[in-house]
Amino acid sequence: MDLRGRCQQGSSRQTRIRRCVLKADPSRQWRLLDLQAIDTRLDQIAHAKAHLPQAAAIAAAESELSGFDVDLVNARTAADDVQRELVKAEQDVQLVRDRAARDQGRLDSGQGSPKELTSLQHELVSLARRQSELEDLQLEVMERSESLLDRVSALEQARSEAAKRLESLRSEQAVAQRDLDAEAGQVAAKRPDIVAGIGEDLLGLYEKIRASSGGVGAAELKQRRCGGCRLELGNVDLDRIRKAPEDEVLRCEECRRILVRTAESGL
């Protein structure tokens, strides 16, 4: 592997500095662009996995489903309370009916003194009035019970549909994740062969820059423009690059990424 480094005097606009110049065959430098393309795509896939479009919809669907669960608990509790109220109302009506039936039976038998029979007649009138009041109350409770049961049924249906939507979204998300994982596996499989042809020193510099520069460690110099920071190089920098040996590893003076020269550099 023809990869070596040497130190030389360099200069900036204000001060002279001492910098280490890394040397690598151009073919090895070109491999950095292939490696960068792979790493960029892997980063894009990782970002896509972390921001799947279904995620927000799933969160909303989970919140909706949770809301239905709360509403259902409240609706069922209210329905149960009214059902107990209805049972009591029915029992109260039945008690009055039973009492009226007993009094009517005694009255029809003619047993008892005239005063007692007259009292039974008055009580039957009162019981009939009480029965009517209780039956009206029973009807009102029945209507409330039916309304609450209808609400429970509607909420159960809505919850079922929400659960199906959530399941569908989760299924879509799982498929999207599997597809991205499969693509990541295919892309990553090409990386070792490319890395093997770059060399440890150059690879180490690339990885160091990539970690501190938003995932981009190497960029093509294309049409006088750095592919990393997208800035067009000035004449001074371009002249420096023209004079640099082909095996010298160059850095962009603006973004400090490795600058790879190609046939389209415009030099």
Rank of each mutant, 00 (worst) to 15 (best):
V175S: 03
G110H: 07
P114Y: 13
E156C: 02
G67Q: 06
Q173F: 05
L137C: 02
Q173R: 15
R16D: 04
G105W: 15
V152C: 06
E172S: 06
R144T: 03
W30P: 00
L139A: 11
E90K: 15
V87G: 01
E146K: 13
K115Y: 13
P53N: 06
E146V: 14
S11A: 12
T77M: 10
D201W: 15
S171W: 12
E200H: 06
G112D: 05
L203I: 10
E254F: 15
L52E: 05
S160K: 10
L117R: 15
G197Y: 10
R225E: 09
A59F: 10
L134Y: 11
Q8A: 07
A79N: 01
L117K: 13
E167G: 01
L107I: 10
R28V: 01
E232Q: 12
L148P: 00
D39F: 14
E172L: 13
E183M: 07
R99D: 06
E167H: 08
I209Q: 04
A162P: 00
D136C: 03
K222D: 06
L65A: 09
Q83R: 14
H122N: 08
D136R: 13
T118C: 03
E140H: 12
L52F: 09
R99W: 11
Q186F: 07
Q177N: 04
A189M: 05
V70K: 14
A24H: 00
G110A: 01
P26Q: 02
K164I: 09
C20E: 10
R242N: 03
R6N: 03
Q223Y: 12
G5Y: 15
R240M: 10
E254L: 06
G112P: 03
E116M: 08
D239A: 14
Q14L: 15
V152Q: 04
Q104L: 15
A78N: 05
D201E: 11
G67K: 08
